[in-house]
Design a binder for these strands. Structure first.
Lengths: 228, 228
DNA sequence: CCAATGCTTCGATTAGCATCGAACTATGAA
DNA sequence: TTCATAGTTCGATGCTAATCGAAGCATTGG
């Protein structure tokens, strides 16, 4: 009778309303921070913290540390499948959450991640920088090449000043909506703030979305289509 | 955080150990009575009664009255699938239980599930019995073929005596560690107890592991390698 | 260095619920 | 009818875990 895997342990993990809300919020596939999940779940940060650590140690979530943030995501497709199955069982009178409003589309295209550029445009910039040889991604480290440095200087960034600071110059930041990396670090921040200074884009004051002007987007594209 | 399907309600239903045991017992596909389920779950009849009524009103179980008995079964295949998914998550993610000590390896290889053989050897026996035509798995039912019956009789099992009893002769039981079925039912029990009588194996008095002797394992292999 | 932000740990409180003994109802058999 | 078996309801008990306030770390920015 006490045979088999401990499904009660897993099920009771999912069975708490706050944790169920957290898991449901993560069904969208994006990773969210602890604070975001706390507000999704409708509990305080302390409570969410204990829930999240339980979910991680229970194998339902995985954790990515990124600076002073912690990003949580579902651990695997199997987890998502089980949750989907549970939703099916539970859908007697309930309806599925609806997502992907117009705001989400803007967020997906371009948004700030702390103070650097993320979303489609952020990841394209990163990929292109690597392809053009501006960034050198050998081994685990990410470094700015001499070519990349001269391009950045031409763009109006004080690379030497940044390099003197303690903070790392270049860092990869996993972009969860695109499932690939974008550029973080002090260079990433400077790059974005330079774009804002140039009038290419501005931040949505209400959220994390970044709105490029038409001219700004053209300039951005031209910047990326420089020949190697 | 708003309203979605109430997966927490369903999950917390499964999340109680006693109810999880009940559901697991019903995974075999057979309907069981309230008393049987009480003993499967390891709780008293009163406790089981409240659990069962919750499971029914939660939509996980269906109820069939038959005389003064109440037979319970899983409400649908979807329920079974969710349970199976949970078993998968629990088996892979439950790092506390999945430490592979020497004892766990023994458990994985051979153990008792109630009173029949489970684990690698149990599932191999089941598969081989089906392959040799001893068991007929057409449709949902599992039956002992005439050939299988004569082999069982030769092995020293009173098949007719078992068939007269109330308990089902053959039953499939999903083996969580192997993800396939092994043989349960009164035949499964008799088969295992006969192996013990023959000195092939004995139960670990401290746990559920089954320890085969060297000769016993040889005999077991010879038994399975009979030609069809 | 200091301030701000994101997250965690601690302690105390609270609420829910699983559990069982005992008494009760219902069905079937002699 | 009377007895036996199957299952339920009730009340009391005790344990677990969710929750939040407050304080403590850790990282980042200036």
């Amino acid at each position: 009778m006490k045979e088999g895997p401990d499904i009660a342990r897993i099920a009771s993990l999912i069975g708490d309303p706050a944790r169920a809300n957290i898991l449901t919020a993560l069904m969208a596939g994006k990773a969210l921070t602890a604070s975001e999940l706390a507000s999704e779940a409708g509990v305080t940060a302390q409570t969410a913290s204990t829930h999240l650590s339980r979910l991680v140690s229970g194998g339902l979530l995985i954790l990515r540390r990124q600076g002073r943030h912690k990003y949580f995501a579902l651990a695997s497709d199997e987890v998502a499948k089980v949750l989907e199955g549970l939703m099916g069982l539970a859908a007697h009178g309930g309806h599925l959450r609806t997502r992907t409003g117009p705001k989400d589309r803007a967020m997906k295209k371009a948004r700030v991640c702390y103070n650097h550029l993320a979303g489609e445009m952020g990841t394209r910039l990163f990929d292109r920088f690597v392809g053009l040889g501006y960034l050198d991604r050998s081994g685990n480290s990410l470094r700015l090449s001499p070519l990349g440095k001269s391009v950045m200087v031409d763009f109006g960034i004080d690379v030497d000043g940044l390099a003197g600071a303690r903070a790392p110059l270049c860092r990869e930041c996993l972009d969860w909506s695109e499932r690939t990396s974008h550029l973080a670090g002090s260079l990433g921040r400077s790059l974005f703030s330079r774009m804002v200074d140039l009038g290419w884009a501005k931040r949505d004051p209400a959220g994390r979305a970044v709105i490029f002007s038409a001219k700004g987007e053209q300039a951005f594209e031209a910047f990326l289509s420089a020949k190697a």
